[in-house]
């Protein structure tokens, strides 16, 4: 998992540097766009410490039901494609979309409740 985190961070750095639609960076771009739903472009942004946000995120993910949690992590931590997640858990792609959509709604509500949005 340590290596997974390093790999993810490197990919993210690469994305930030290039912002190019290259292999790997493309999936992260999609992931970021999906996550932007939870923030809301017009929301008033608050200055928060990243560590607090990290803790809040951990808390949020822990309380997700097992299946939703697993799908959420595969998508937003590992930046796996919908097809890969569907294959991994033997779900139809539509199911993955539905689960991710539910999770994002919950995350948005959670972030609002916790005062991040």
């Amino acid at each position: 998992m340590f290596l997974a985190k390093i790999t993810r961070n490197l990919a993210f750095d690469k994305y930030r540097r290039s912002k190019a639609e290259k292999r790997g960076a493309h999936e992260i771009s999609l992931v970021l766009d999906e996550l932007s739903e939870c923030i809301g472009e017009s929301s008033t942004e608050k200055e928060i410490h990243q560590r607090q946000l990290n803790e809040a995120m951990n808390h949020f993910v822990k309380q997700l039901p097992l299946r939703e949690r697993s799908v959420f992590i595969r998508r937003y931590f590992f930046a796996e494609s919908i097809e890969e997640i569907a294959a991994k858990y033997e779900l139809k792609k539509n199911h993955v979309y539905v689960l991710l959509s539910r999770s994002r709604e919950k995350l948005k509500a959670y972030l609002q409740k916790e005062g991040y949005l």
């Binding site: 993210f12 930030r16 992260i28 992931v31 970021l32 766009d33 996550l35 932007s36 939870c38 923030i39 942004e45 608050k46 928060i48 990243q50 946000l53 990290n54 809040a56 995120m57 993910v61 937003y76 931590f77 991040y116 949005l117």
Partner: peptide
């Protein structure tokens, strides 16, 4: 908050 912050938190 930026979407990148959220990604980093995850």
């Amino acid at each position: 908050m930026k979407k990148e912050d959220l990604f980093e938190a995850i």
